[in-house]
Simulated scan of single mutants.
Amino acid sequence: MEVTLKFGDKVTVADVRKLHDMEDVVFDREWFEETAERNRDVYYMFRDLAKSDSDLDAIKAHHLRYDITVIPPRMLGSEYIKTVGHYHPHVPGTDISYPEIYQVLEGSATYLLQKVKNGEEDLVLDVVVITAEKGDLVLVPPGYGHVTINASENTLEMANWVCREFSSVYEPIKRLSGASYFLLKDGFVKNPLYRNIPPIRHLKPLAYNELGLDPGESMYELINKVEKLRFLTAPQDFTGFLTGVL
């Protein structure tokens, strides 16, 4: 059965992440091997949203995309439910990868961000965890891969703005069976397939004034001051801002 979301005057059908899509990154292998319902839904992605045709035209003209992801509360065996996780490619002609910005719309999110050595994806340079509640903003800067975890008892709904000109890179995280840490009920545990994993740095969400938003304001409203989002499409022009985020 299709899962849909009404956003503005449009209804969008979800891209569904199934349990079998998570096979490479699940911590609890014994649980996964014993699970018969591999085709059950895990979370839902609603891509390229806009409240009107004119908004969508403006979003596309600025090479952006606005998405919403919905992650129901559940466990993947002994591990809290999460996204598969991914990196972003470099902006053509630069050595800077594209950033992404998230906002929690409902529920609570745990964002795990990791930076690895170029050409050695198993060598971890930095790990950051940001716990975000409704309304909070989290910016994933260039150079970081990321996973979103729902460690709460409520459905997590989050939005993101991102440059529409690239595809996310999933292979390195899948090849290493997940991110550098897994979040279990007893806390974070290290992924033994990575080398030299540093301790987690726990940081706070991004301040609203960094984007020119009022506290609690939906970041979708940046459609009305879209120049504030140019750091997503041309991060090479905002290195000072982006390197100071973490």
Rank of each mutant, 00 (worst) to 15 (best):
D53P: 04
S108E: 15
Y111N: 10
H62V: 08
A61S: 15
H62M: 14
A61T: 12
P92L: 11
D95C: 03
L64W: 09
L113F: 08
I96G: 06
L56T: 07
V104T: 05
T69L: 07
D126S: 10
T131M: 02
A109M: 10
I68T: 02
G107F: 04
P89Y: 15
Y87W: 12
S52T: 07
G93M: 06
L125T: 05
S78H: 03
V127P: 05
G85I: 09
V127R: 08
I96Q: 06
Y111W: 05
V116L: 07
E100F: 12
Y98D: 06
V70T: 07
P89M: 14
H90W: 01
G85E: 08
T110S: 15
Q114A: 13
E121H: 02
L112P: 05
Y66H: 07
I59G: 03
V127I: 10
T131P: 02
Y87K: 09
K117W: 06
E106M: 06
A50C: 08
A50T: 07
V104Y: 11
E100C: 10
I59D: 13
L56E: 11
R74L: 07
V104G: 00
L123H: 10
D95I: 04
G93P: 03
V84F: 08
A50R: 00
D67I: 09
I59N: 06
H90A: 13
A50H: 05
K117N: 04
V84A: 04
T131V: 03
A109H: 07
K51C: 05
K82N: 04
T83E: 10
S108K: 15
H63T: 11
A132M: 03
V104A: 03
D53T: 11
S78R: 02
M75R: 06
K51E: 15
L105I: 14
E79G: 00
S54N: 13
I71F: 09
D48I: 12
L113W: 00
T131E: 10
D122W: 00
P99A: 13
G119P: 00
E100H: 11
G119W: 01
V129T: 06
Q114R: 11
L105T: 04
D95H: 12
P73Y: 03
P73A: 06
N118V: 04
L105P: 02
P99S: 09
H88W: 11
L125D: 14
V116K: 01
K51I: 02
H86E: 01
V128P: 00
D67R: 08
V84E: 12
P89W: 12
Y98P: 08
K117F: 08
M75L: 13
V129P: 02
G85P: 08
A50S: 09
V104H: 05
L56Q: 14
